[in-house]
């Protein structure tokens, strides 16, 4: 349970107290429900940010431009998230977020590029860039009121954003490639199982 130190402390204390137990069983039920689960709030979540259509008009805006625009539109919320929490989880790839977006979307227009990081396979750099882009979007949303769940965020990202559409496009590029590792990364390392149903390939 994030940002609930009292609940976290009770859970950690209960786990450590097991060390004082000389008897079996050592696996015991922790009876307290996490506060959010106990509240039973299942009203659903609506993205509070009104993002324009994924691509306004293919003749006027490419998907590269649409992704760049979307990233820019989320920047104030992401900045607020960083300001509130004092940290970010973006940073696996070493790219800044616009550069991560440009690298990912380049797979759609140019095919699989050479690795931009010497000594690292391009599929690894792609995965880390995708992790960074997702973290940027999710942190921006989590800064907003309304408390989206993980599933809310996944549904929004993969179903409603240009970034999600780009992920599915890159997945197809990898699946069509001859390299078995690229195929595996496309199948298992870009789209969570519970969001695969958005795929235009299905």
């Amino acid at each position: 349970m994030p940002n609930d130190p009292d609940f976290q402390r009770r859970v950690v204390k209960a786990a450590l107290d097991l060390l004082n137990n000389d008897d079996t069983p050592v696996l015991v039920e922790y009876p307290e429900e996490a506060p959010a689960a106990a509240k039973g709030d299942d009203d659903g979540w609506v993205c509070p940010i009104s993002l324009p259509a994924q691509v306004r008009d293919p003749k006027e805006e490419t998907i590269t431009e649409a992704l760049s625009r979307e990233i820019a539109e989320l920047a104030p919320w992401y900045d607020l998230a960083v300001q509130k929490s004092g940290r970010t989880t973006v940073g696996s790839s070493g790219f800044d977020v616009p550069a991560a977006g440009e690298f990912i979307v380049s797979f759609l227009s140019d095919g699989i590029p050479d690795s931009p990081i010497e000594g690292e396979r391009v599929d690894r750099v792609l995965k880390w860039a995708c992790d960074d882009l997702k973290a940027y979007y999710y942190e921006a949303m989590l800064a907003q009121p309304g408390g989206p769940s993980s599933l809310d965020l996944d549904e929004w990202f993969f179903g409603q954003t240009t970034a999600g559409a780009v992920f599915f496009g890159v997945q197809k590029v990898l699946l069509d490639d001859d390299d078995e590792i690229n195929q595996f990364v496309g199948k298992e390392r870009l789209i969570p199982r519970n969001q695969q149903y958005w795929s235009p390939l299905d």
Binding site: M1, P2, N3, P5, Q8, S85, R87, T89, V90, G91, S92, K127, W128, D131, A135, Y138, E139, L142, P148, S149, S150, L153, E188, R189, L190, I191, P192, R193, N194
Partner: peptide, 20 residues
């Protein structure tokens, strides 16, 4: 930062609070 290879688990807790 988190570089776990799996994409199938919830990272939103970690994104909000390292202590999760």
């Amino acid at each position: 930062i988190m570089s776990h290879a799996s994409i199938n688990y919830d990272r939103s807790g970690f994104q909000q609070d390292l202590n999760v």
